[in-house]
Structures are given as C-alpha cells and as structure tokens.
Simulated scan of single mutants.
Amino acid sequence: MRLSMYNRFSSLKLLSVADTRFASTIVMLKRFKFIKRSLETMVMSEEWASYRDDDQEKARFVRDKVLNEYWWDQVTYILNFTAPIYDMVRACDTDRPCLHLVYEMWDSMVEKVKVEIYKHEDKALDMFSSFYDVVHDILIARWTKSSTPLHCLAHYLNPRFYSEEWLNEDRARLPPHTDGDVSYGRQLCFRRLYPNDEDYDKVLYDYADFSLKSGPFSDVTSLSKRGTTDAKRWWANFGAKTPLLQALAFRVLGQPTSSSCCERNWSTYSFIHSLRRNKLTPKRAEDLVFIHNNLRLLSRNTDEYNEEKTMIWDVGGDDFGTMEDTGFLELASLSLDEPELERVFFTEDTTTN
C-alpha cells in the first residue's frame, strides 16, 4: 500500500540499494533530495490519512521527518561535505587512466570538504573545527592506508605539475621534486624498477633534466605544452631523447588507480564460465573474457552507445543473461555501478523497451 501510494505521487522510483553498492547511503540521500516535493505532497494528501489509520505512530514519524526543514537541511549538509569525497572516489573507481591525478584530486578534495564544513559552521578557514578535525583524521588514515609509492611516481611523471600555469593557480603549490615525502616514494619505485645500476643512474639523470626543465626538456615548445597537453601525449611528443623515462611514463600514466576493473573481469568470468557453460577450458574462458570486456570498452567510445536503440546496451552488466531476466528495481540499482549512469532514472517504460 505504501509503495503504490508513493508511486502515484512520484515518477522517480525508490531504489533498494545493497550495502555492497558504491556509497549506498550517499546515493539514497541524493535520491531523497530529488523526491522531496513528491514526499511532501504525499504526506499532506488525503490518501496518507487513510494509511495513518493503519499505523498512526509510524505515519506520524514519517510525516514529521518529511515536513521538517531542519532535517532536510541536515541531509543537504551531509551531501555537500561528502560530495568532494564521493566525486573523487567515483573518478578513481573506473578503468580510466588516472593514477597520475590522484594526488591533485586528493589535495583538492580535502580543501573542498573543509570549505563546506566551515561554511556550514560559519567559521573562518583559519579557525578550529572539532568536526572537521575528526573528518580530516579519517581521511588521512584512509589515505595512509591506500597510498603507495606508485602514486608518488605517477604524480612525479605528470608534466602538468611542473608547469607555471598549474603552480600559479595556488601559491601553496610546489613542483613535485621539492616534496620530500613524495620524493621518497619515487626513489623506492626507481630502485625497484631498475635493479641494474647503469639503468638506475640513467633514469635518475633523465628525471633530473625533466624536473629541472634542462637538457632535452628545455625546449620552449615542450615547456609551453606542459600545462595544457595530456600527460601521455606530452611524453610521446617530447620524451624520445630519454627512452627509459619515456617508457616508464607510458606504463605508469596509462594505469587506472583502483582494482575495480579487475573485479569486473572476475564478474565477467563468472558470467561466461557458469553452470550452463562449465565445460569451457580455462584458455577459452580467458579469451572470451578478454573479447567481452574489450568490446564493451570499444563500444563506449562510439556514437551509437548514446543513441536510442543501443543506448547503454551493457547496463545489465554480467549479472543477467537477458534484459527479460532483470526485475525493475534490480535494473534501476545497476545505474549506481557506473558514474555515467548515475544520473539515469529508469522508469517502467525504460525496462519494457
């Protein structure tokens, strides 16, 4: 009865989000914000009065919350200060190469969280906030647990972070080679990747030229393009005279920053090597996983992927054999798995197309 009543007041469906879904609590709060007006209309309607007769205490509690502007202000506040965290994790939780952007995204995210909290508390940024102090400690603990020397190396090999354009955006910014902690992580990577002393000395020498903008990296064009050109393309254009460092840059700058793409491969493997197809050899199954995932990636770069007939054709992921096997709520929940699908609101018409 409650769900049917809600459906009469809102065309946007409620989602049943599992705890294992990405940021399920935040996603549900965002959905509540979208349907705020519909909920308010529902609890003020005559139909709600009939439901109230069935369970007065619960109906009163729901009505009080929905009509409580302070409660909605708290929801908005939670969404505002968690939005930078959510956006950063969203950006990292993809198969796109972004390992070299993590440090910048991290610093920017922490600053944005601070701004939102201090704005809500009506404090100047140089004042003390006990709540921000707690949030900051949690973020630092998470970063300490998750960061690796490879993040340091990727940050160091991004030419943008040495450009005047990037450094002048914020006076507090420094070029990576002047950061002692990050420099230590880079040194660890160099020593592990180049056990041969000759190669190690060579890559150190090349990196010194790169960071100091000297030698083969002193060209006016290469310097002017540091702040505007994609990192891999910059190395392709201007790194040929330092082949060791260029090859390393290609490897590191082309890597995603999380293991989510590997986990999706495991999901695809379980879809292909199922109870119905349990006689596949490991080699055949691996080949099919390779083809399946790469076809999906290639298709997302085509115009047809956003056209009506083939729009988001892989929305069902690998959990269902056909779209007919997918229930409405389950299909809608899948929109939480992909950043570009989060803004897609599935209706009953969508599932029957």
Rank of each mutant, 00 (worst) to 15 (best):
H100L: 01
K145D: 15
L99S: 00
F271A: 08
K119Q: 14
S38M: 00
K213G: 01
S4W: 00
S224F: 08
R343G: 09
D337A: 14
L157D: 02
L14A: 04
A91H: 00
V182I: 13
K119M: 13
G215N: 03
N237R: 11
V17F: 02
L334P: 03
D73C: 08
G321L: 15
K145C: 13
Q74F: 01
L280M: 08
S11I: 08
S333V: 01
Y184S: 13
L204I: 01
S10L: 06
R186M: 15
V344C: 12
L341C: 09
D219S: 09
E348C: 14
T281Q: 11
C98M: 04
S211E: 01
C152W: 04
L223M: 11
M311R: 14
E348N: 15
T351K: 10
C92T: 02
K30P: 04
S146H: 15
S267D: 03
R296Y: 00
D133E: 10
D314C: 09
T82D: 01
I35P: 03
Q56S: 14
N301Y: 10
Y77G: 05
E69N: 11
N353F: 07
N7S: 12
L331T: 05
M109A: 04
E307G: 07
E338C: 12
G227Y: 08
D206E: 10
D230H: 06
S129A: 08
N278H: 11
R192A: 15
F217K: 00
L139Y: 06
R296M: 10
E342G: 10
S50N: 08
A91Q: 01
P175M: 10
K279R: 15
G239A: 11
